[in-house]
C-alpha cells in the first residue's frame, strides 16, 4: 500500500498525474489487449451471474426475463428457513464440513512430517508419489471404488469384518454411516496431495536451524515441534483459512453421487438441495435464494477466520 501524502492536490498536479497515467496506458496498450479476453471471460462467467443473483428476491419467469420478473422480497428465504428439514440440512452441511476439516487439516500435516523424517530420499519420493495417486481418480470412480469396498455381499471391508467373526454391515442402508464414509474416503483421495504442499514448505526451512537445535541437544520430537512445525506454520494457516472459507461447499459433487433415498436424512446438504430444487425441479428463484444464503454464510466465515488469523499475528489471506 502506498502512503497517502497530506499535501492538497493542486489542479496542475492532478492534470499532470492524469497525463502520466495516459502515457502509461498508451505505452502498455499491448498488455491491455493481451488481458482483454481473460477480462471478458471473468465479466461474462463470473460477474454477469452476480447480476442474476437478484432473482433470489424475485419470482423469476423465463418469459419476463431477470429484469422483468416481479419482486417478492425475502419470500424465498423465509420459505427455505421454514421448510421442516431446514435444520437437518444445515446440520448436515456444517457437520460434514467440520468433521472433514477436523480430519482433513491435521492428517496431511502429520503425513508430511512422517515423510520428512524418512532419510532415504529415493524411498521418500516413491512413497510420496504413491500417496497422491488417488488424487487423480475422478470422483465418480472414487465413489464407485468406495461402493466396491463397502458392499454388504462382496466388499473387502465386510470380508474383513466377517473374517474376524463380526456380521456384515450394510453401510449404505444406515444413514448414520454416511458422514464417516464421506469424510474418510475423501481423506483417502486428498491426504497425499495436500501433504505435498507441506513437504514443499518443509524443504524451504534452512538446515542450520536443525543443526542449531541438534547442537542444543534437542531430540527428534523436539526438533519437529520447535523447528519444522513453526517453519510450515504460515502454510498451515493459509490452507486452513482457505478450507474454512469453503466450509459450506462440502464436496457437493461427491455427496450427490453417494446420496440415496435411504441416507437422505444425513446426506442432504444445502448444495444438493439447491441442485434438486433448481436444476431438477426448475424452481429457479427459490434455488438461487438457497445458493445465495450458502454463499453469504461462506463469505462471512472466510472474512471472520481471516480476521482471527490476522489478530493472532499469523499469516492471513489479505
Amino acid at each position: 500500500m502506498e502512503i497517502q501524502t497530506a499535501r492538497k492536490p493542486s489542479a496542475e498536479g492532478f492534470s499532470r498525474r492524469l497525463a502520466e497515467i495516459g502515457k502509461q496506458l498508451k505505452r502498455n496498450i499491448g498488455l491491455y489487449l493481451i488481458i482483454a479476453p481473460a477480462f471478458f471471460y471473468f465479466v461474462i462467467w463470473h460477474f454477469w451471474p452476480l447480476y442474476g443473483i437478484q432473482i433470489a428476491f424475485k419470482d423469476y419467469m423465463p418469459a419476463l426475463g431477470i429484469t422483468g420478473s416481479p419482486w417478492v422480497g425475502l419470500e424465498h428465504f423465509t420459505r427455505f428457513f421454514r421448510t421442516f428439514f431446514f435444520w437437518d440440512i444445515l446440520r448436515n452441511t456444517l457437520g460434514i464440513s467440520v468433521y472433514g476439516l477436523i480430519v482433513g487439516i491435521p492428517a496431511p500435516i502429520i503425513l508430511a512430517l512422517m515423510f520428512n523424517e524418512i532419510r532415504r530420499k529415493r524411498l521418500r519420493s516413491v512413497v510420496q508419489t504413491i500417496s497422491y495417486a488417488p488424487h487423480f481418480i475422478s470422483v465418480v470412480v472414487a465413489v464407485g471404488i468406495l461402493f466396491f469396498f463397502i458392499s454388504p455381499t462382496t466388499g473387502v471391508i465386510n470380508g474383513i469384518i466377517t473374517r474376524f467373526g463380526g456380521s456384515p454391515i450394510d453401510f449404505m442402508a444406515n444413514p448414520s454411516h454416511f458422514w464417516h464414509l464421506f469424510v474418510w474416503s475423501g481423506l483417502w483421495q486428498s491426504i497425499g496431495w495436500s501433504s505435498l504442499i507441506y513437504t514443499a514448505a518443509m524443504a524451504g526451512i534452512p538446515p542450520d536451524q536443525y543443526e542449531a537445535a541438534y547442537i542444543d541437544g534437542a531430540s527428534r520430537f523436539r526438533r519437529i515441534w520447535h523447528v519444522t512445525l513453526p517453519g510450515i506454520m504460515p502454510t498451515i494457516m493459509i490452507l486452513s483459512i482457505m478450507s474454512i472459507g469453503g466450509v459450506m461447499n462440502v464436496g457437493f459433487e461427491k455427496v450427490l453421487l453417494m446420496q440415496t433415498d435411504m441416507n437422505l436424512a444425513k446426506s442432504e446438504v444445502i448444495s444438493t438441495y439447491m441442485y434438486k430444487s433448481g436444476i431438477v425441479e426448475a424452481q429457479y428463484s427459490f434455488s438461487a435464494a438457497v445458493g445465495l444464503f450458502n454463499n453469504v454464510v461462506n463469505f462471512i466465515l472466510l472474512i471472520l477466520f481471516n480476521a482471527i488469523a490476522k489478530r493472532a499475528g499469523q499469516t492471513s489471506l489479505w
Binding site: W48, P49, L50, Y51, G52, G278, S287, A288, G291
Partner: peptide, 13 residues
C-alpha cells in the same frame, strides 16, 4: 474465488 453467483445464476447466463 471467494464469491460467486451460484449454480442457478450461472445456469441462466
Amino acid at each position: 474465488m471467494f464469491f460467486s453467483g451460484g449454480l442457478i445464476p450461472t445456469y441462466l447466463v
